[in-house]
Design a binder for these strands. Structure first.
Length: 859
RNA sequence: GCCGGGGUGGCGGAAUUGGCAGACGCGCGGGACUCAAAAUCCCGUGGCCGCAAGGCCGUGCGGGUUCGACUCCCGCCCCCGGCACCA
């Protein structure tokens, strides 16, 4: 009888072993078999839960596998350590964000160790260290030099909850991505990174990323939002100037019956006639005050006001009124449109509401459009151009659109233009816990970049100030101009933390270099990252910014690749039931009794399956799981629970199932360790094996093949099920010989058990290391070679042939392998075999699929 | 509305150049061990009919192609994610 599987003792025994042996430290000079594996680095918030494990356990298992395959694996870890939650937590607890952050980092390190998740710890980085953020500042200065960082006065997203501005990417359905507060607009002077300069390339290069999930690429395509069309200038009547519009339908210009400016459009004030001024001002003020959510509701009625001004339609010389309406957005195109109500549903609704003329210029083939009776806009590009001057009679479509644009270009009032939804990346943040922007404002010299040799601009060492930023710390912002030495003021904003994470994967190659941002030689040798893994929530934000920064660095000559991440895998979330009592609110999962009633009042609890969060009190900490079932069981369950890209619910039953398997594995190897240890180390020859042994030999090699292929494809769930099948097969084999160990085939049994231990080791490294010693080895599992299938073992001597009648399985027969390829023989044998079922029925046809089946078609 | 992904037992999920649907695990039922329970082990487990042998039905719905469809085609429904007054 095996002694109890004492996971605590075993895991404690091996916990520091791999680190001490240096298995996770690559030799960076050896790039022959290099593999750069990377998990998205975490934000160190409190402590990790089992959901975080999805990411890191997967990565650790994959890297252990790669090491055994002989790869030189770089798998580093760090912390995205700047950010607002640190400030908020610090405000709540009265500790400095730095202390809170470092305490969390300490917890994360402890948890990684408990999990057996190993990295090259010499490369650990934290973005809040001056050693790191100095290079954020350096990067900013390089961007500034090249015009990729610029300051402008703009309407920006403002989160009243976080008291800071946000990038467009951080506004989700009108709300702050972080805190959910409805976002408002503010006009501020802020720093931007010119990501739009790379819009076209960011879009086109998505095609190169064949190993990225389709949905991430689609999301980025949508986000970039390319549309082709034209810019057209409409001269104003009675005053100088023009209104420039962007349109994707230049062919409908003859149907433009009015124009609309966004409420924030700078021309609004200039062109509004005195008698309309009050009304326009009221409308504009109200529109600007409204939140983005209210304004962006698709279903709300169109509103607007007439400015009193007119413009000339440059195509036909007609005078058309200029309106202001909030359905036109200042942030897209030029902030102004030509309105063609007959062919644009939004313009149509507006025209109907305000009695503006509707003039069709595209007539469909099957009906006659009439502006007076139309009930909706005709948006299709099919039919014939009408009412369109020299274009009348042309077929509607792309060719005609081109002709229109050429006409505009000849006449000089418009030109071809591509517009993007993507806007420049606003990087200023009015917060303390971030990278100071290395810019000084001098009354004499203006905007002056901090010289590179004066970096880093350090965050001031202050008692934490609560919800106040650098703007409240004179000791920080009062400075001298680097150019003239006169009194000057520092920029008091910090950078968006997405700047920190947009290049960290480059820093891992030389994390402590204080001469330069990274070592280009190493970076070019090791990048792009071979495999990047993280949550899909970064599909746009982090991944788009990183792609942009990589391209910018390439154009500076610092890197020689176009894309930072060759392969991307997005793992799903782990969810858990959350319980709520109508009276007592969220109830912690640990306090919920078996019958799912409230521990305070006994009422039945409401349940929902949700992402683990402190607020819903449904967080499962790994520490508890490891205490009760061990890290190996948690790792096994995490990888077995389902396909890693899918969201999945954590259950107590599931972890128990995994624990059972680890126990079974322990007992199996323990009980038969002597058979393995004493077996002669001789090759297994298939021909020499008795039938049951032949089967074990075949199954073993099939499973080696299956497990290997599954791990390569990140299908750990099916890899583990194959390992379980192999374990079951071994049990069955032992059972076949009634557990009499002298009847077991030593060399074969040894091969099978050892392959099982090695193949399970990426998933359950602790027990694997222990079992490996138990069967008589002195060196480490990570020093072993990954098992290879023996092609000879995969040869099948007999095949089972399915016999169908009319496509339904009716019988099966086992035939020698060579015979299974003989169509005529198979047909004959099958007919004989099912003769009794065919009585009297006429056989019409027989389909034979060699090696697989015979289908007899009757009547 | 547009784009992407998906829908298979009580549950998580396997299976695709069209060829045995439900691997593996959970749960459940039965048995062994035990004074008893837990743990463990063994057997069973898609539904319906049948004592059984066996039969019928079955991969969201409706059609189609095919000897044969979870898999391919056409038309729908539902769920998840992204974008959305983007001109």
């Amino acid at each position: 009888m095996a002694p109890r599987y004492d996971f605590k003792k075993i895991e404690a025994k091996w916990r520091d072993f791999w680190r001490e042996k240096g298995f996770f430290k690559p030799d960076l000079r050896d790039t022959q078999r290099k593999f750069y594996y990377l998990n998205m680095f975490p934000y160190p918030s409190g402590e990790m839960h089992v959901g975080h494990g999805r990411n890191y356990i997967l990565g650790d298992a994959y890297c252990r596998y790669l090491i055994m395959r002989g790869y030189n694996v770089l798998n580093p870890m760090g912390y995205d350590a700047f950010g607002l939650p640190a400030e908020n937590a610090a405000i709540e607890r009265g500790v400095h964000p730095r202390d809170w952050t470092y305490r969390n980092i300490e917890t994360f390190r402890r948890q990684f160790r408990l999990w057996g998740v190993e990295f090259d710890w010499d490369r650990e980085i934290a973005t809040c260290e001056p050693e790191y953020y100095k290079w954020n500042q350096w990067l900013f200065l390089q961007f500034y030099k090249r015009g990729l960082a610029y300051r402008k006065d703009a309407w920006v997203n403002w989160c009243p909850g976080c008291e800071t501005v946000l990038a467009n990417e951080q506004v989700v359905e009108g709300e702050c991505e972080r805190c959910g507060t409805p976002v408002t607009k503010k006009k501020l002077t802020q720093w931007f990174f010119k990501i739009t300069a790379y819009a076209e390339e960011l879009l086109n290069d998505l095609e190169k990323l064949e190993h990225w999930p389709e949905r991430v690429k689609t999301m980025q395509r949508n986000w970039i939002g390319r549309s082709e069309g034209a810019l057209i200038r409409f001269p104003l009547v009675d005053c100088d100037g023009v209104i420039e519009v962007f349109t994707t339908r230049p062919d409908t210009i003859y149907g433009a019956t009015y124009m609309v400016l966004a409420p924030e459009h700078p021309l609004v004030d200039q062109i509004t006639t005195p008698e309309r001024r009050d009304e326009v001002r009221r409308y504009v003020e109200r529109a600007i005050a409204e939140s983005e959510i209210q304004r962006q509701r698709v279903d709300r009625p169109k509103t607007g006001v007439f400015t009193g001004a007119y413009a000339i339609n440059p195509a036909n010389g007609e005078k058309i009124p200029v309106w202001v309406a909030d359905y036109v957005l200042m942030t897209y195109g030029t902030g102004a449109i030509m309105a063609v109500p007959a062919h644009d549903q939004r313009d149509f609704e507006f025209a109907k509401a305000y009695g503006l003329p509707i003039v069709p210029v595209v007539q469909p083939e099957d009906r006659e459009l009439d502006g007076a009776t139309m009930t909706e806009a005709y948006e299709e590009k099919k039919g014939v151009m009408v009412n369109s001057g020299p274009f009348t009679g042309l077929p509607a479509g792309p060719e005609t659109i081109q002709k229109f644009i050429e006409h505009f270009e000849r006449e000089g009032f418009g030109q071809r233009h591509v517009s993007y939804r993507l806007r420049d990346w606003l990087i200023s943040r009015q917060r303390y816990w971030g990278t100071p922007i290395p810019i000084v404002y001098c009354e004499k010299c203006g905007t002056v970049p901090v010289p590179e040799d004066q970096l880093p601009v350090l965050l001031p060492e202050v008692e934490f100030l609560g919800k106040k930023g650098l703007a409240e710390i004179p000791a920080f912002y009062e400075t001298q101009c680097p150019k003239c030495g006169g009194p000057a003021k520092r920029d008091t904003d910090t950078m968006d933390t997405f700047v920190d994470s947009s290049w960290y994967y480059l820093r891992y190659l030389s994390p402590h270099d204080d001469e330069r941002i990274f070592d280009p030689e190493l970076v070019n040798a090791w990048l792009p990252v071979d495999q990047y893994v993280g949550g899909v929530e970064h599909a746009i934000l982090h991944l788009l910014y990183s792609r942009f920064v990589t391209k910018a660095l390439r154009d500076m000559g610092l890197v020689n690749f176009d894309e930072p991440f060759a392969r991307l895998f997005t793992q799903g979330m782990i969810t858990h039931k959350a319980y709520r009592c109508v009276e007592h609110g969220w109830i912690h999962v640990k306090e919920v009794p078996e019958d799912e009633t409230c521990p305070h009042c006994g009422k039945p609890l409401l349940t929902e399956v949700a992402k683990m969060s402190k607020s819903k009190k449904n967080v499962v900490p790994p520490d508890d799981i490891i205490e009760r079932y061990g890290a190996d069981a948690e790792r096994l369950y995490t990888l077995f629970m389902g396909p890693p890209e899918k969201d999945i619910e954590w259950t107590e039953e599931g972890i128990r199932g995994a624990y059972r398997y680890v126990n079974r594995l322990w007992a199996l190897v323990w009980d038969y360790q002597d058979v393995v240890r004493q077996a002669p180390d001789e090759p297994v020859r298939r021909e020499a094996l008795p039938p049951r042994e032949k089967q074990l030999w075949r199954v073993l090699n099939e499973k080696i093949k299956a497990v290997t292929e599954d791990i390569e494809g990140f299908r750990f769930n099916t890899a583990i099920s194959a390992l379980m099948e192999l374990t079951n097969e071994l049990h069955d084999y032992i059972e076949h010989h009634k557990g009499e160990r002298e009847r077991l085939h030593g060399p074969l049994f040894k091969r099978a058990v050892e392959a099982l231990i090695l193949m399970v080791s990426p998933v359950t490294p602790f027990i694997a290391e222990e079992l490996w010693r138990l069967v008589g080895h002195e060196d480490a599992v990570l020093e072993q070679r990954w098992p290879e299938p023996d092609p000879d073992a995969l040869i099948v001597e007999e095949r089972e042939i399915v016999i169908q009648i009319n496509g339904k399985v009716r019988d099966r027969m086992t035939v020698p392998a060579p015979l299974s390829e003989d169509r005529e023989q198979l047909e004959k044998l099958a007919l004989e075999r099912v003769q009794h079922r065919l009585d009297g029925k006429r056989v019409q046809r027989v389909i034979v699929v060699p090696g697989k089946l015979v289908n007899i078609v009757v009547e």
